[in-house]
């Protein structure tokens, strides 16, 4: 079952502004490991063609694993009140 199919099971209320910011230059220069690609259970982070990190903040499950793993550049906050994932089972 693809990650997209998994995320499609969930209810999201998507904010127009992202709650995740990345300094792409710093990220490219300082980070060799790209842990965000693997620790995120929602595959919010993927690698772009230029080696940049693409962010699909819309599917973020708000777990916080990426910020714990990244010590370079990630600025992560919870989505604004009333936005983001809304679990119906939990």
């Amino acid at each position: 079952m693809s990650i997209d199919a998994k995320l499609a099971l969930d209810a999201f209320k998507i904010d127009e502004e992202s709650h995740i910011q990345i300094d792409q230059t710093r990220c490219k220069e300082r980070c060799q490991t790209r842990y965000c690609l693997y620790v995120c259970p929602a595959q919010v982070y993927t690698l772009g063609q230029e080696g940049e990190i693409l962010i699909r903040y819309e599917g973020c499950l708000e777990c916080g694993a990426c910020t714990i793993a990244c010590d370079t550049t990630l600025a992560w906050n919870y989505p604004r009140g009333g936005f983001g994932v809304q679990y119906r089972f939990g």
Binding site: M1, L9, D10, A65
Partner: peptide
């Protein structure tokens, strides 16, 4: 996904429908 395919797990959830995917630290 590979956990769900394990023979110890698969028959327990056979025919079931996933209704939510969640994650947390």
């Amino acid at each position: 996904d590979s956990f769900k395919e394990r023979p110890e797990v698969k028959p327990l959830i056979e025919g079931g429908h996933p209704v939510e995917y969640s994650a947390h630290i």
